[in-house]
């Protein structure tokens, strides 16, 4: 775990707008707590969900967070993420549920993709929707941000899902001011996105300001990687390589953390939050530009979201 506060003064931190975003996110979290019964916070071990947990702690201090953390586990994880997840749940005395895509495959709910580009990313939606149904979950808080992707840019804070878990982007409920309508019929649920209005840079500056612990994967480290379609992917024993693809080791860090099969890594030597922030401020590629799951088609995210994706 890194703790690098000493350089904070070197970076121009914009407290006023971060404070406004934090106020908004806390307000949304409290609305969730008040309007729903069975509440989960979708926890991937990535920075956005770690920030969500931090905001939830702030929103309900000195009580423990009133949400169960839920991890949809593809089985293709960076190992450190799992340890980080378990430690975090223990440290903050939060309930943790893990639902495995492998179980959905074993019981025939999911047919595993084959071939070199096989990923369990899409399959997560089925495992997630099954868990929502099984546990009677009526709200799932997610770390989705509108700046990530063009379909996400259309999402409401309180996003309704019908009894099939589907999103209807052409017919969303109007969302006026900060009045959130979480009413629904039995079997339906909501996805709520408290950090909708945050940008990638806002998240990083907030992590720095609030001294939030992150997995070391976000900082530079040596890793075996290979290149596919212009994206550097982390190598893992279960990944199939094309004959032309060569694995090599170099200094990298993760800009996002998800399923290992579709999370691109960045060549970087940044080992402090300040360096990461400078890197992101200067980059010309979006955060999800390195996500293999979004490259599948023009409307890959919209299609997955309609099916129930995060």
């Amino acid at each position: 775990m890194k703790d690098k506060r000493q350089m904070k003064n070197l970076i121009n931190i914009n407290d006023e707008h971060l404070k406004e975003l934090e106020n908004e996110a806390i307000f949304v979290m409290r609305e969730v707590a008040a309007q729903f019964e069975k509440k989960v916070l979708l926890f991937s071990g990535g920075k956005d969900s770690i920030v969500l947990v931090h905001l939830a702690r702030k929103a309900f201090w000195p009580a423990r967070i009133p949400f169960t953390l839920m991890h949809i586990d593809t089985g293709h994880n960076f190992e450190e993420t799992l340890k980080f997840r378990d430690d975090l749940a223990k440290e903050f005395d939060a309930e943790l549920i893990v639902k495995k895509v492998q179980d959905s495959i074993d019981n025939g709910r999911v047919v595993e993709e084959q071939g070199v580009n096989a990923s369990r990313n899409k399959a997560q939606s089925i495992t997630l929707l099954d868990a929502i149904e099984e546990l009677n979950i009526d709200v799932a808080i997610g770390g989705g941000r509108r700046d990530e992707e063009k379909a996400r840019a259309k999402e409401r804070f309180f996003s309704h899902r019908n009894e099939f878990g589907q999103w209807d982007p052409k017919n969303q409920r109007p969302e006026l001011w900060n009045i959130f309508n979480g009413r629904k019929h039995p079997g339906e649920h909501f996805r709520v996105f408290p950090i909708s209005n945050w940008t990638e840079l806002d998240v990083w500056q907030y992590i720095l300001n609030e001294n939030i612990k992150l997995p070391n994967l976000y900082y530079t480290h040596k890793r075996k990687i290979f290149k596919r379609n212009g994206i550097y992917l982390a190598w893992a024993p279960f990944m199939q390589l094309k004959p032309t693809e060569k694995v090599f080791e170099t200094d990298v860090r993760c800009r996002t953390i998800g399923d290992i099969t579709c999370t691109g890594v960045t060549l970087s030597k940044a080992d402090s939050l300040e360096e990461i922030i400078s890197e992101i401020a200067a980059t010309r590629i979006t955060e999800r530009g390195g996500r293999y799951d979004d490259k599948r088609s023009e409307a890959a995210m919209e299609d997955r979201k309609k099916e129930g994706y995060f």
């Binding site: 259309k154 052409k170 909708s196």
Partner: peptide, 22 residues
Amino acid sequence: LLTDGLRAEREQGITIDVAYRY
């Protein structure tokens, strides 16, 4: 096309729902 992010919007060249940009 930068803000018309939905498939139906891009096909028809119209805006159906709000898109937020930062």
